[in-house]
């Protein structure tokens, strides 16, 4: 192999790499928060909603889980344009990612909700808790705790998958890389750097989720059960 690695020509671009990392983090964080909220609501609707709503949510989840993310991103991006609304690429990217991750979160949360025994709900009702209180204190909190590892994997995946939004020119890490490699012609080196940056991001995101879990799930912390 005679390839000469040449990383130094990337050095002038360090700021742009950092900007890309920052935007990737922002996209992922916003999509995670919105995706979790939406997904949890969809899961409740699917578990406990009126029949028509169950069907609508079920159809939505199936469509999203059986089409490629890239196609979904394009559909959201061009769909918004067709509606005559002007949004910038980053917002469109968040929208597309949320539409995607809500569906996956819904399925994970549904598994969590179903794992809570009916007798728990009965006990809560007998203590006089209303439906909202029962959902929050007795169903959702233990359900989230139980499926937390699956949720974390999903949101790490979301962060990695956000690279696809470079296709609609959201200025996240991969889009930055695409530009830098066409400026410098050091494609291999550029993507090595980007790959390492994503790897580092994954560790940071996992670590943040672990810390958050330790903070929130006091039982796990006190009993020393792994998350």
């Amino acid at each position: 192999m005679t390839y000469q690695f040449e990383f130094s020509s990337l050095l002038p671009y360090w700021r742009e790499f950092l900007d890309g990392v920052w935007l990737t983090l922002q996209l992922s964080a916003i999509s995670t928060v919105l995706g979790f909220t939406g997904g949890a609501l969809c899961a409740i609707a699917r578990a406990d909603g009126p029949p028509w709503l169950k069907r609508v949510v079920g159809a939505y989840v199936e469509v999203i889980r059986n089409t490629p993310l890239l196609v979904q991103v394009f559909l959201v991006y061009f769909g918004i344009a067709v509606l005559g609304i002007r949004v910038d690429a980053n917002l469109a990217a968040v929208l597309a990612l949320v539409v995607n991750v809500v569906a996956y979160t819904c399925e994970i949360m549904r598994a969590g909700i179903e794992s809570v025994h009916k007798a728990q709900v009965e006990a809560a009702e007998c203590l006089g808790l209303n439906r909202r209180q029962t959902y929050w204190h007795v169903i959702l909190r233990p359900a989230i705790e139980r499926v937390y590892p699956a949720l974390v994997s999903q949101y790490v995946l979301l962060m990695l998958a956000s690279s696809i939004t470079s296709q609609i020119s959201a200025e996240e890490l991969t889009a930055v890389a695409n530009r830098i490699q066409s400026d410098t012609f050091r494609s291999f080196e550029t993507y090595i750097v980007v790959g390492l940056l994503y790897l580092a991001l994954s560790f940071v995101v996992r670590w943040a989720f672990w810390g958050f879990g330790m903070l929130v799930f006091t039982r796990r912390r006190k009993l020393g059960t792994a998350l």
């Binding site: 025994h117 728990q120 006990a123 809560a124 006089g128 808790l129 007795v138 233990p142 705790e145 039982r219």
Partner: peptide
């Protein structure tokens, strides 16, 4: 109930406090 049905993610004290605070 026969099967206790305590809320597993809450301590004994929190199990007891839940309904008085909520309801």
């Amino acid at each position: 109930f026969q099967s206790y049905n305590l809320f597993p993610h809450l301590t004994a004290e929190q199990n007891i406090m839940l309904a008085p605070t909520c309801v």
